[in-house]
Design a protein around this nucleic acid. Sequence first.
DNA 1: TCATGTGAAGAGCTTCACAGCA
DNA 2: TGCTGTGAAGCTCTTCACATGA
Lengths: 227, 227
Amino acid sequence: MSKNKKLPGNDPDHKRIPRSVIRRLPVYLRTLDNLVKNDVEVVTSMELSERTGFTAEQIRKDLGHFGTFGTRGTGYHAEALRNELLKIIGLYEKTAVIVVGAGHLGTALLRYNVNRNPYTNVVAAFDTSPDVMGQRILDVEVLPVSRMPEVVRKHNVKAAILAVPSENVQAAADQVVKSGVEVIFNFAPIWVQAPPGVFVHNADLSIELQSLIYYATREEAFRSKGV
Amino acid sequence: MSKNKKLPGNDPDHKRIPRSVIRRLPVYLRTLDNLVKNDVEVVTSMELSERTGFTAEQIRKDLGHFGTFGTRGTGYHAEALRNELLKIIGLYEKTAVIVVGAGHLGTALLRYNVNRNPYTNVVAAFDTSPDVMGQRILDVEVLPVSRMPEVVRKHNVKAAILAVPSENVQAAADQVVKSGVEVIFNFAPIWVQAPPGVFVHNADLSIELQSLIYYATREEAFRSKGV
DNA sequence: TCATGTGAAGAGCTTCACAGCA
DNA sequence: TGCTGTGAAGCTCTTCACATGA
């Protein structure tokens, strides 16, 4: 029986901050960014709550895991808190990312990501097919897998987005790990294994869609009675 | 302050099965499908545990929310359990889905989904741009938004995948809701609102990637000491 | 006075441990 | 005997409530 006690390969002892907290941090970050852009100087946890949908208490608790950043009776200095969050998440310097698999999904993710995101930067795409080799997608070059270690070293690449067919995805994961990447964001519908110290997030979109369907079908009874 | 007590628009009173349980069901489903394909007749919770990575107790508890499907001392009949899961999730009849936005991401999701998934079926894509109108992507036609209500009714569409630019995504959500869709799977980096009874899942890939970066940067200290 | 920061209470999920049944 | 089904215990995360300090 496989135990999930300490997910092997995932977070051996990372200061024990709940994952749910970590997932909310970039939402706070984006919100603060917008506030700073609109020249807002001070923001309360209640205002952040309105903009993010999380409760004010939760926001204060989340921040409390990392230090004390506010001023009692006043709130938080938006820009200062934004900068703290950048440091906490590890996005203070723009983070280099690679995309493995330059097919339809890989290409789309690359475009999506490059445009929508001020903190991460796709520095290269990799593929094995000669058809796409050397092509440029929005300034990003498609390179052969053999050049991956060099690129990872040169740009200090932190994360790899895997958008390759299921058959190849474990090999692709092994390759990016060997090249020195620490985080894997996998879109293939197969769960990828990685050694301890490498963090894997499997985004299995088919599975997610299927689980959503559950929430559609509950009302079937009503519906067929004719709403 | 926005309270998340009973997320408005999300699950007004859905039998209170934990979301974490619902997310695991499609994983069990896929595993059982593979077993059935390999002519396995009986499977124990321990074997399912090995194949899914969840603990055997958790699998038994999860199933226990919906009834009793096993035989003590023996295990579960793989095909029977597969069929029960199909009914529970609501996938017993192939579920019709639409894709809104036939750009790069929409197209990629459409291809990804159509191929990889025996339970859901993309019946149409919608877009506003004349450039893509009438095109076919893997047998799926790109239609004008005006035809959405008709298509949703005809195919009994349950879910909509939104892959439109942020500026248009709330309008797109309003449109699919008006057309009768009950579940929204949104890929735009903006959280979409929907009326009660409509279930929204926001898959904000930039935010997810950013939160993963957190797990890369923790070891920075080691790394710069030269591993 | 007002909003943060934080122990304590509560809710939600997971794991344990074993009774129950083929 | 062996594996399921399930209360109880345990753990994690969220919410409450208020002391604290600008």
